[in-house]
């Protein structure tokens, strides 16, 4: 089984998709962070502008390298600009 990864969506990203999390299967050969993000942006057009302004984190660490190879069970968080306080 290739397994899957979970995308966590917060704030405007959650509003754009209408859900707080998305599970996506990984291809047998795996996928990179960039490929996953592009596929989700293709699927949810309203998420595109939010993704452009967002930081990504993989398993609780910020990740900026789109070539990062994902593994089954990884959690990818989409962090739009923060607005706490």
């Amino acid at each position: 089984m290739p397994g899957s990864v979970r995308l966590l969506l917060f704030g405007p990203a959650r509003e754009a998709v209408g859900r707080a999390a998305l599970d996506r299967p990984l291809a047998a050969e795996g996928a990179t962070l960039g490929e996953l993000v592009d596929a989700v942006a293709e699927e949810f057009l309203a998420l595109r502008p939010v993704l452009q302004a967002s930081r990504l984190a993989v398993n609780g660490r910020y990740a900026s390298d789109r070539r990062l190879r994902l593994a089954p069970g990884d959690e990818i968080a989409v962090h739009p600009p923060y607005s706490g306080g």
Binding site: F10, G11, P12, R14, E15, A77, H79, P80, Y82, S83, G84, G85
Partner: peptide, 11 residues
């Protein structure tokens, strides 16, 4: 700094 750096969002 909390507003800038801490992953919290309001809608």
């Amino acid at each position: 700094e909390l507003k800038r750096e801490v992953p919290i969002w309001k809608t």
